[in-house]
Design a protein around this nucleic acid. Structure first.
Lengths: 157, 157
DNA sequence: TATTGTTATACTCTATAACTATA
DNA sequence: TATAGTTATAGAGTATAACAATA
């Protein structure tokens, strides 16, 4: 008798390749605007962090942590973005060790343009789901993607 | 006036870190069974490919393609798994160039054990969603993860 | 001549450690 | 002494190219 797959597939085994495909789809879009993946992640990170309030992001380390990157890897990225006038990076007068980071007007504009194209591609993929399922799916992803380590940490089990 | 986030976040920006967190959660489980990530991906790949029929997988290249890996990177992994008696790797009599791959009994047993632990962790994360949303979410992921390139390919847009 | 599997090599990305300047 | 930022170095992971065996 042939064996049937009884259980579900691993969530990781489905999500990781899906994420990789999404990144592959982003690459040509970013390249068209001379942005590396990390450069866009920085722009988007600042966009998200600025979305709720107007205060600049305190410290590069905080940004690195927020976007899941490494503070040392970030530096050449920030150098490039600053030189191109896409971000502001100025010393905090209150603590001259830290750099305050924020998007410039053109930085925000570039981000929005790129994001529109990216999300247009993503929308095509999401089109596989019935319209009302799409929003439900996005909501679920938002819930699961919010600090997943909190529920995945195995050190306590 | 404060700016509010109008649109949604990028799907990639949520799924990629989520996938990374899922992999991080797998690592200690795999390590406890002396498996690398790619070793488990191979075991799982063979499990999935064997799930529907009993025929061994034809060629390592086909497996590499199925699991999204590189055929050259796979070889030391297959060497190890074969040496530990977890997979069978025999030349096809019909075409002595290709290797037929299949799980041994102990290979399948190890896979199932590891997968149970992995999915138990994943279930804890999925527990954030109401019970009936969980299945819906998994169904959506399955739909989206199936050859996503088909809808994400930007070369035609 | 083309294809499978293999090996060797080069490259990219990532992580670690050491240094400076401010506190 | 501790922290933010920076730089340099080492390591892991990945991709590319060349080779032997078989078709």
């Amino acid at each position: 008798m042939k064996q049937t797959i009884t259980g579900r597939r691993d969530l990781a085994a489905m999500l990781v390749p899906l994420g990789r495909a999404l990144m592959d789809a982003e690459r040509p879009v970013l390249q068209a605007h001379d942005l590396t993946m990390w450069a866009y992640v920085v722009l988007d990170g600042l966009h998200v962090l600025h979305g709720t309030d107007e205060q600049p992001t305190r410290s590069q380390a905080a940004l690195a942590d927020a976007i899941g990157g490494d503070k040392t890897r970030l530096i050449p990225v920030l150098d490039d973005l600053q030189q191109r006038g896409l971000i502001r990076r100025e010393r905090d007068p209150a603590d001259r060790r830290v750099h305050l980071l924020s998007l410039t007007t053109s930085g925000r504009a570039l981000h929005d343009t790129v994001q529109q194209q990216i999300q247009r591609n993503e929308a095509r993929l999401l089109g596989r789901l019935p319209a009302r399922e799409q929003q439900r799916f996005l909501d679920a992803v938002r819930v699961l993607a919010d600090r997943p380590e909190r529920d995945l940490d195995t050190s306590a089990s």
